[in-house]
Design a protein around this nucleic acid. Structure first.
Lengths: 343, 343
DNA sequence: CCAAAACCTGGGAGCGCTCCCAGAACGTTC
DNA sequence: GAACGTTCTGGGAGCGCTCCCAGGTTTTGG
């Protein structure tokens, strides 16, 4: 004795491909072909399907596509949380904007993941679990093995910022070396003789590359490269490093700070020590954050295009996913000097 | 005449639930129950499954879960791109961090979407297409109908920042009104008499709420509330607004700027006009960005906890998804005055 | 001591799509 | 006009999971 018709199963939230097929008077297969832009579909059928899709407001179910097909139509952006904090917000937001801009129009979703302490294995499991087609990694600290692990697992991976411990994994970075060298040369050209630097942390390539560039710029001019202090990409660390430098060399007349955010702190310290910028001490930063132009005095700096970095990483990854061959193993984006009044 | 066995179908990237079941000596159903933390599983079976999962490095296929089950285990964070630019990076990055922190441990993915001009329909289709369980929306401008549309479609939605055109959609916001009022009262208590304000854009609630709070604070002290200028959350607009105010009231002795980022510009203008801060003109900002403390002079400001905003939005959404009843329709987060030297 | 309730377990039908295969409707060529 | 492409089309078998159902095993209670 069965009851009458059963309404409980009334869960039909969305249009399905089959309904589109019926509305267009074709088969599921044909609709699928149209959606995926495959050839071998008559223009008549194609037209009918497009009409039906429009009328029904159909949006294909990603989960089903992923399950049935082989790709997830989805890439991950992985940020080491610690790194996100250290490298400061604007960097991250800029990259994100670039990634998104490059993804526009492509039917690819972006999922965001932050690696947490102790969570690494879960992260790797998830990423390698076929849930994403590729991975973008940024804010690497030290010898983080993540990119290597992912690449070894056969997952297309692109790193933002030269990774220290992941030889062979493709990366995109700003040309920190040449940017820093340009800054150093500029200071030399303005007649500065005793030029210091505040570098980023020793376990990040971005810090080391800018330091190397500064060294090269100075040594080409036969100047000493002994005035090096280190910070961690915070204003406070910049202030402390500046104080240290001033103590070691009260006669310094210029400083290249490897990040605008630290330059802000350095500027405060100089001010507190009664040093006029740029008359007594010239200051050049790096990054060209929005705040560089509103610093007092407005900061001369090396601009890096962070949004472009995000775009380029994404382009590189998508190209690899599209099966392109002979892609460059790494890409360096040019920097540009922005002259304001601090140097 | 068929060929011998066919190896072409050799795509077996990951462990499947069934293999775990076999390894643990139980059925698929039981493994599924363990994974989903359901009751009615013997501890012996549970143990065996956990062991098998650990040994095989199994990670469930999200696509399949989504397809078979009813939820996507995934929420979207939608940012209006224009808004992201205007409200400036730190806001966005902070919210994101909060969202992520709150999601930690929950098996929920975050997909990021930026609404682009003309893309709205696609966005709505996608979001309502069952690909996500809920939506977080931030950076709303004007009367954006998006939250209303989503909510009407039955999709759980939480807005960050009071939405102007979406009555009834739950939201979380900093208590801009009271924060601004506190700023105004503080200036009054310091003996300032001619107090101006630089407000945010008229089509954003955050701008209007801070303006209202400032007005209330002044009118309670029976002071004039006529010195209002508007900016758009950029340093340049802050500088221009300050210049305008100075022209209209050369005797003004205090200004409440509705965003630190604009305060930076205002500070520049005041400096250029030879006004000493805080002696001639006291300045109070809003937000307490990292740069507030490195401004010259360091900025007195109203702190809002942006990360907490992200956390709270996420908590509210997850609570709704968990079926909790009688949730508050909106939540206001307290602000705090941070006294530095600009006022 | 036996019925009812509370626990556990496995089987199997889909979820909505893609992709393979077989075949129809056309030419085109010898 | 038979034999062959080439273009188009539909049918249907899964993808890996969840969830319902049916049944088995224990515990409880009168």
């Amino acid at each position: 004795m069965t009851d009458a018709v059963d309404p409980p199963k009334a869960r039909r939230p969305n249009t399905r491909l089959e309904e589109v097929a019926r509305a267009a008077g074709v088969s599921k297969s044909t609709v699928s072909r149209v959606i995926n832009g495959e050839p071998y579909v008559s223009s008549r059928a194609r037209e009918a399907v497009h009409q039906a899709i429009g009328k029904l407001g159909y949006s294909p179910n990603q989960a089903a596509r992923t399950l049935a097909g082989s790709r997830a139509n989805c890439i991950a952006l992985v940020v080491s949380e610690q790194g996100a904090r250290v490298l400061a917000d604007p960097f991250f937001a800029g990259v994100l904007r670039g990634v998104h801009a490059e993804l526009a129009g492509k039917r690819v979703q972006l999922v965001l993941m932050m690696s947490k302490e102790g969570d690494e294995q879960d992260l790797v499991n998830y990423l390698c679990g076929g849930h994403v087609d590729g991975v973008l990694v940024i804010s690497l600290h030290g010898q983080d093995p993540l990119p290597r692990t992912l690449a070894d697992a056969g997952l297309p991976t692109v790193v933002g910022g030269r990774p220290l411990g992941a030889g062979g994994v493709p990366y995109v970075d700003s040309d920190n070396f040449n940017g820093a060298m340009e800054a150093a040369r500029y200071l030399v050209s303005r007649g500065r003789k005793r030029i210091a630097t505040i570098a980023g942390p020793r376990d990040m390539a971005v810090g080391m590359d800018r330091l190397s560039g500064w060294k090269r710029g100075l040594s080409q001019a036969r100047l000493d490269t002994d005035l090096v202090a280190y910070g961690d990409f915070t204003p406070e660390s910049g202030a402390a490093a500046m104080a240290d430098l001033l103590k070691r060399a009260p006669d310094l007349d210029a400083v290249f700070v490897g990040a605008d955010i630290m330059a802000l702190g350095a500027l405060q310290t100089l001010h507190a020590h009664g040093k006029k910028v740029p008359d007594d001490v010239a200051v050049v930063g790096f990054d060209d954050l929005m705040i560089a132009s509103t610093a007092v005095p407005p900061l001369t700096t090396i601009r890096q295009d962070v949004e472009q970095l995000g775009r380029t990483m994404t382009w590189r990854l998508m190209a690899e996913l599209a099966g392109e061959e002979n892609l460059p193993p790494f890409l360096l984006l040019p920097t540009a000097m922005v002259t304001r009044s601090s140097a």
